[in-house]
Design a binder for these strands. Structure first.
Length: 562
RNA sequence: GUCCCAGUAGCUCAGCUGGAUAGAGCAACAGCCUUCUAAGCUGUGGGUCGCAGGUUCGAAUCCUGCCUGGGACGCCA
């Protein structure tokens, strides 16, 4: 079904080996304008080799190249353009998709391989911010896409459940906290305490010492501190679980920072044994001047470890535990340097598998062009945003289709879908200006647009005479053709999105397919009772299969009725 | 100061590993529901692709410099 490859082969034989297949394949492109056909081969590179004008080469090739899957080849200036045989190609494509169903587009590149994906990783006792949403949504989509490529994906939520902020929190709790309030609304109350601490510390600097003291107590196993920490952690996890439930995301591991506390000593010892540690201003570091990077800090002056130490321990532990072939870290772009350092240190330790570690950075969510500040408590709560989206979706359903049976359920799919899609439709590196109105928009290039298209298509299938036993024939009209071609692109889209670790590739794809289908829907009466009806229905069915699967990869549900 | 990311229509963004005439959505305006879900479709207007060089048969795309915005740069994560 790979016509690009076949087209290249035809050219290859006709060229009598003047160019290798490896040289021809990347040259083949899709013409920008459909009047130019489906495949194009520019002859510029050949012109030099053959000492002939590109136009002439194209002309000569057009007379020679032919194959059953090609309707014709035409020389258009320096290009050799190939037109696919719509009858044969469309029949094959639709038969294939309807046979494979949701497995269409699955790849085997990752078969027998494992990938760990570190994502979401919220901080305990702090609200789930919009920034964490990005990591969560991108990571989940990439995990799904990895699985589609054949990998076994391990979803790891590397919780921020350790660190000096707990000293601050315990201090604040003992001064101003109440058990009752925390139980009532854990995250809000804990976050309130955290914010209060930062407010008060300006007037009472000794609070910092108090916080340090309590963190020290925590580290050395003080029972009181430990009990509080455990409690805060549990309450926070309960809150996060609500959000993951709404987003329909599950993890294989919640081993966060605290989990590695007892595993860092070994790492430090190993670094010492391998003679990688050096002293600098009282701290212990791995020097990276050869790599033109600032040194990687391993231990503070006071002997405490740092996040680099923790991440080293985590990487080594994960390699041992999961035997991964690849490992992704879905973490904001501001931590680029940290991951560069981390991977280099692992290399220096002799771990060649460090080459398979990949930081997948993403842009900020900005408020008025600036990074949102969490310390001052000015944060938009994700849970509120999701609830608002669901609520709005519900109102829309009430207005447009009040007879719908399971309105609450569908509203949830639509509202959550809107938020996920809004995040995934653009390249992850772009910064996003926080804009609630835009997130909750339900027209144009949105998740709903895709869901709506899917529901429309499903509606047609419900009305079709008999959905089963479709006698699929080829479709040759110009309205179905772009859909067929886009449907055929799906496997390539999966591959590309995985290689680039870019879920937006899939999001853009489902938008494009939806757009083409909606045009078709407008022009063609699908249920018209004529000889091609079953073929058209096969096309509609193919579209629903691919849209549903594409949305699933992004983490979005595709209701059959809207 | 050094390094990283970005700069394309009024706004938000596409543009595949260089290829033919620069593409969507939103916003504006004009149309399309007795007929498969109008949360849709069709049409119109709107561009010195940040600036200046360079490489090439060919540059929005690659290289260099500059400008603008954001970020990172040792004891937070």
């Amino acid at each position: 079904m790979n016509y690009r490859q076949q087209f290249a082969e035809e050219i290859y034989t006709q060229l009598e080996k003047k160019l290798d297949m490896d040289e021809i394949i990347p040259l083949i492109e899709e013409p920008k304008y459909n009047t130019h056909g489906d495949l194009a081969f520019p002859c510029f590179t050949l012109a030099k080799k053959l000492q002939k004008a590109p136009r002439q080469i194209a002309m000569e090739l057009s007379e020679k190249v032919s194959a059953p899957f090609l309707e014709k080849t035409v020389a258009a200036g320096p290009y050799l353009n190939g037109f696919l045989n719509k009858e044969i190609v469309s029949k094959q494509a639709m038969e294939h998709i309807n046979k494979e169903q949701e497995n269409y587009g699955s790849l085997s590149a990752g078969a027998e391989k494992t990938i760990t994906i570190d994502f979401s990783s919220p901080n305990i006792a702090k609200p789930f911010s919009m920034g964490h949403l990005r990591s969560t949504v991108i990571g989940n989509a990439l995990a799904n896409i990895s699985e589609k490529c054949g990998y076994k994906a391990i979803r790891i939520n590397h919780l921020g459940d350790w660190g000096t902020q707990f000293g601050k929190l315990i201090t604040a709790y003992q001064l101003w906290g109440s058990e009752e309030k925390v139980r009532e609304n854990p995250i809000k109350e804990l976050f309130h305490l955290y914010v209060s601490f930062h407010e008060q510390v300006e007037k009472q600097p000794h609070l910092e010492d108090e916080a340090r003291f309590w963190f020290k107590q925590l580290e050395s196993g003080n029972e009181e501190a430990l009990q509080l920490w455990k409690w805060f952690r549990e309450e926070s996890l309960k809150e996060f679980a609500k959000i993951y439930e709404l987003l329909n995301i599950k993890f294989d591991s919640y081993d966060g920072e605290a989990f590695y506390n007892d595993k860092m000593d070994d790492v430090v010892q190993e670094l010492k044994a391998k003679d990688l540690l050096s002293h600098s201003d009282g701290a212990e570091v791995v020097d990276l001047t050869d790599e033109k990077l600032p040194p990687c800090l391993i231990k503070k002056k006071d002997g405490a470890t740092l996040y680099a130490t923790r991440d080293l321990a985590a990487a080594i532990y994960r390699k041992k535990t999961y035997q991964f072939d690849k490992s992704f870290y879905i973490v904001g772009q501001e931590q680029r340097l940290h991951f560069q350092q981390l991977f280099l240190v692992l290399q220096k330790m002799g771990y060649n598998w460090a080459a398979e570690l990949k930081h997948v950075p993403f842009g900020f969510i900005l408020k008025d062009g600036k990074k949102m500040s969490t310390r001052k408590g000015k944060v938009v709560l994700l849970e509120d945003v999701i609830k608002e989206a669901i609520n709005l979706a519900y109102q829309n359903i009430e207005a447009k289709n009040p007879a719908l049976i399971n309105k609450e359920e569908v509203a949830k799919m639509v509202g959550v879908g809107a938020i996920i899609f809004h995040d995934l439709k653009n390249e992850r590196q772009n910064n996003i200006e926080f804009n609630l109105d835009e997130m909750l928009r339900f027209e144009g290039s949105t998740g709903l647009y895709v869901q709506y298209t899917h529901a429309r298509a499903c509606s047609i299938l419900r009305k079709a005479p008999s959905e089963n036993n479709l006698a699929i024939g080829g479709l040759t009209d110009s309205y179905s053709w772009p859909i067929i071609k886009t449907l055929m692109d799906f496997p390539d889209v999966i591959e590309k999105s995985f290689q680039q670790a870019e879920a937006s590739v899939v999001a853009k794809y489902v938008l494009k397919l939806s757009q083409e289908f909606n045009k078709y829907y407008g022009y063609i009466k699908i249920l018209a009772d004529d000889a091609e009806q079953s073929s058209r229905l096969a096309l509609v069915k193919s579209v629903t299969i691919v849209l549903k699967e594409g949305l699933r990869l992004l983490g979005i549900k595709a209701p059959e009725k809207l």
